[in-house]
Structure formats: C-alpha cells, structure tokens
Nucleic acid binder design. Structure first.
Length: 529
RNA sequence: GCCCCCGUAGUUCAAUGGACAGAACGAGGGACUUCUAAUCCCUAGAUCGAGGUUCGAUUCCUCGCGGGGGCACCA
C-alpha cells in the first residue's frame, strides 16, 4: 500500500527525494500523509503549500481514481490521501488469501544473521533481567526470519572463566566447611548445589567448577528458557568450542603474525590503539592465563571468519556498554567489518518493592528469577509486558504490583479479541464472502478495522530495519481495539446473508493477522477464556 | 573526572523532525432480554529547566538539574 503511494509521489516529482509517508493518528488527515512538499521547498525555495497543491493535481491525474479517493494539500504543506475503499478491500482479500504468510516477505538481499542473546553466566538461576533480553532476542530473530533471512539464535556459554571457578569454590567451601569469602556466590541454590555435589568435591576441583556450571545449565537455565518460550538453535560453549580446541591460541598467533599482538610488562596486549580510538587491551595476563577479551575476540573470529555471518547481533545488558567499543575494535583486528556487528544494549530492570528500589545481585543471592516471574504472572503476560518497552527504557518492575495487575495486562485484551473472533466464526456457519462480496463493508468501525489490519506488512518491514520490537505488541493492541469497537457496533451473525458473509470475512482476517503478529511475539492465543 | 542511557498525564510506558503529544492502569459518568461486559462510549489530566538549529523540536546541538549504569593483567 505504502509502496504504491510512494511510487505515485516519486512519479509526480520526477526525481528521487527523501520524504516521509505515514498513517496519521487523526482520521481528519487522511489514511496516509506526506511531508514531501516541505522537503522540496528546501531546494527550490517556493512555499510548501503551492508545491503541495501542484503535486496533488499531478498525482490525481496519473492515478485517475484508481488508488486514491481523495488527495488534499493542507496548510502548511502536508498532502493527505484518502484511499479508494476498493483498494482497502483488495488488501483485505489479500489477507484472506495469504493467511499465515500475510506480512512476511522476501528481502531483496537475504542475509545469514546470528542473534546472540541471554548468554548468562551459568553460575546461578536466570533472572528477570535475563528474561528481558531473552524475549527481545527471540522476537527480533523471528522478525528477521519473517523477512526471509537465515537466522541462527545462539547462547554463548561462559563456562571457562573466573566466574565458573568462583562458583566451584563457593560450593566447595560449603561442602568442606571452609571460610566463605566475600566474592563467593551465596543464596539457597548454592546450599542445594553443595548437597547435590557433596560426594563430588574431587570432580569440582578437577574441572575448575565446570561440572557445577554444566549442571546448572542443564537443569536450570535450559528449562527456564524453555518455559519462557525462548528457543535457541545453537549452544556455543566457550570451553569446548574455543579453549579445548586451541582456538584461543590460533587467534593469538594470527594476531601476532599481523603484528597486532605485542608483549610488554609480562603480558600480551592487543594493539587496538592503532585501529580504533581505544587503548591497548590485555589478551594474555602475566600469569599466562587468557583474558575474557581474548575469548571474545576468538568467538567473533568464529562468527565472522569461520561461520561467515553477514551480520551478527549481540544483545547485552547495559552494564556492558563500556565493552562495545573494545569488542568492535577487536573485531576489526581479525578482519571483520565492525559495521556488521550490531550490539543492542538492554537497560537493566529496576526492581521495586513498596515504592522503594530493591537492589538485585546474583552473587548476594538477591534477585527475582525468571522462573518466579513466569510462575507469578505467566509466560504470555510476562513476555508481552517486557516486549512493550523499548530496550533503552529503564523500566521499574514491582513483582507484587505485577501480580496484582496481571489480569489487567494488555495481553488479555488482545487474547480476548481473538477469542471473541473465534466465537463469532464458530457461530457464523463458516461461509465467508468472496472478494466481490466484501463491498458490504462500509461502516466506520469496519473500515477502521481494515485499515488497522493492513498496516501489518508495513509495520513488520519497518521493524526489520530499525529493530524497534516494542512497536509489535502495540500494534496487536491497536488491532484488538479496532476489533472490539467493531464487535460492539456491528452485529456479525445477522439476518442479511450478504452482510454476514462480508463481516465474517473481516473477522476471519482479524484472526489471521492477530495470529501472525502474536506468533512473531511468541505469545500464545487461547481458544477460550 | 570521563563515557553510555533515561527524564512525557497521579502511575507505568508510546510518539521514523510534522498537524490537536497517544495508550494502559487509576479518577468521574454512561451502555448488556441478541455473536463471551476480560468489552464499548464519554470526561478530566503531561513534554525537568535555559539557550540554539529549523517553515516546524518530546525528538537534533550546547549548558544546567535529577535518576540509572559503566570506566581492571574481573567477567
């Protein structure tokens, strides 16, 4: 729809121009509006309004009433378009034809994209904040896939570093009743682990705590993620895929050959200062052990050079922002294009209790787990709630309040719209109008609903470009609102068979689009409520 | 000290530089003998401050104020 209008406008101005075409909130401003006259007036100095008036005439004559019902130049220079109802009905028929493919498309340049997310240290249960990044990553992957890209969803398992060692020591200290150091992990789950591993102290020591981390991953992290509806295509182990295979050493040698890794003060440093506005960073410490940074560079060598991803999206907590420039510089040293590495920072969730902030800390054993969140408010409500916020929002979250309000979560508004649609369809004998029969749809609430439904392809397309996932749940709410409004105003199952068939077609289209949106969000739609 | 993010109705959040700043919850009022009232309709209510750029600023720039996070041979 948008593309057709864009083409008409471009034809009228006879040149390429960077203008906007949007669907305004106010129906007074038409179904679509453009600022093209403002853009052109910058170049030739004429008043936007007169340019707009001229363009309207041109557009009207080329279109000749095919797509546009009415076009108007309005002060100070906007052009508003009202679509020909026939076009709306064609688009509606399109939904009914394409069904679950409606909105999906094949991008002109399909890419091999990796989305790496959650990647929490396997040193404790997943927290609510891990959930936020998880929901975002899972949904973003779905969006990119809907645009015809090949997507790999990956979890990076930090099972080789200091944190895992600390985990092992924390458990050992309880088993062997030795001193509990400040930096140790605490909390009930550590005690439970100590009980579980009480006869395996030797194994913990031998594996540097990895055996405990593996257990946590298998028995806690993976099931939690599954319950949250967060799926992964690949679990990448730092220990097995990098350390054990000697990949760290290989990347180090590669960098040394290029003269980018140098030794001084007993350590090996990566010369990022030559390549980016970054100071040199340590790859191998003076005690001979590799830094986490070296593992990360090797990991991205694997992503870009060995697996040849066209694009890599890493989703991190905002507390890692200082690491962004460093990793991009690191990526450059191994010959990867930093432009192809996209890092999305998700702000931390502020945990509130009785209006007061209550600090979360995994090490102190004080946090809300993803499991608690799922148990208390449910997968769909939790998922929908978190996805409604932009990643850069510092969201406040109060579990008690969330429990109390969970019944008012907008997800139920959307699900209820869906259930109502199913109810009507089951009473409507199944026969829906063909394209010609859709002409019966002409009331305000009917047209409003159609206009909302046909925005879906544009919204999905835009989201594949700017990753603003929070737009999706909001669109689901908009559709639901338009549907509830329609439902309250127009009787579907009624005496006039032509009207009934047309309205059943509209309800059917609503069902289809809601399914398509919520599938991408990973939120289930119930059959009844 | 330096770096990143945020500041919008009472509250939690929206708004690719566009027109009269939208929702939800909360507040007030109305609507069920008909497809599920977990709904619909109506009302009140907001851009932290000061400059700047622009035809136009919640959005971009500068400064200030307030909040969150980060500045290791930790991860």
């Amino acid at each position: 729809m948008k593309e057709v209008l864009e083409k008409l406008i471009t034809q009228a101005i006879g040149q390429k121009a960077d203008f906007d075409l949007t669907a305004p909130d106010k129906s007074d401003f038409g179904d679509y509006a453009t600022n093209v006259a403002f853009v052109l007036s910058k170049a030739d100095g004429r008043s936007p309004l007169s340019i707009a008036q001229e363009l309207v005439e041109k557009i009207k004559s080329t279109d000749n009433g095919k797509v546009i019902n009415k076009a108007e130049a309005v002060a100070p220079g906007f052009i508003n378009f009202w679509l020909n109802p026939e076009i709306l009905l064609q688009e509606l028929a399109d939904i009914l034809d394409q069904k679950n493919k409606y909105g999906r498309f094949k991008t002109a340049t399909p890419q091999k994209i990796q989305v790496e997310f959650v990647s929490a240290n396997p040193t404790g249960p997943l927290t609510m904040a891990n959930g936020r990044g998880g929901f975002l990553g899972a949904t973003l992957a779905n969006v990119l896939e809907a645009a015809g890209n090949k997507v790999v969803r990956e979890f990076y398992i930090n099972d080789a570093g200091n944190q895992v060692k600390l985990l092992g020591e924390s458990v050992l200290a309880i088993i062997e009743s030795t001193e509990l150091k400040d930096e140790y992990y605490k909390g009930d789950y550590i005690k439970k682990l100590a009980d579980k591993f009480k006869n395996k102290a030797g194994r913990i020591k031998k594996t540097g705590g990895r055996i405990v981390a593996d257990y946590l991953l298998r028995r806690h992290l993976k099931p939690s993620l599954k319950n949250a509806g967060i799926k992964f295509d690949n679990w990448f182990s730092e220990y097995r895929n990098l350390h054990k295979k000697g990949e760290l050493q290989k990347v180090l040698e590669f960098l040394e050959d290029k003269g980018l890794a140098i030794e001084h003060d007993g350590a090996t440093w990566l010369k990022t200062s030559d390549i980016a506005d970054e100071k040199d960073r340590v790859l191998v410490k003076s005690d001979g052990s590799p830094t986490y940074f070296l593992a990360d560079v090797a990991y991205h060598y694997d992503k870009f050079i060995k697996r040849k991803f066209d694009k890599v999206i890493d989703i991190w907590g905002a507390d890692h922002h200082g690491y962004v420039a460093r990793l991009k510089a690191g990526a450059k040293t191994i010959g990867a294009d930093p432009e192809k590495l996209e890092i999305i920072l998700v702000q931390l969730v502020r945990l509130m209790k009785d209006g007061q902030e209550s600090r979360m800390s995994k090490r102190a054993g004080q946090f809300i787990t993803l499991d608690e969140l799922l148990n208390e408010v449910g997968k769909d409500a939790a998922r929908f709630h978190f996805l409604m916020y932009a990643p850069e929002t510092h969201m406040d979250f109060d579990l008690e309040l969330a429990k109390e309000k969970s019944l008012k979560n907008p997800v139920y508004y959307v699900q209820y719209a869906y259930v109502r649609a199913l109810g009507v369809l089951s009473k409507g004998s199944g026969s829906i109008a063909n394209h010609a029969g859709l002409k019966e749809l002409s009331s305000d609430s009917e047209l409003r609903l159609i206009k909302e439904l046909i925005k879906w392809p544009d919204i999905l397309r835009q989201t594949t470009e700017d990753y603003q996932i929070n737009r999706l749940p909001r669109h689901a709410i908009d559709i639901s609102r338009a549907f509830h409004n329609f439902y309250e105003h127009e009787r579907v199952v009624c005496v006039d068979p032509a009207i009934m068939k047309a309205r059943l077609a509209l309800v059917s289209a609503t069902k289809i689009v809601l399914e398509n949106v919520l599938n991408i969000l990973g939120v289930d739609l119930p059959k009844k409520m």
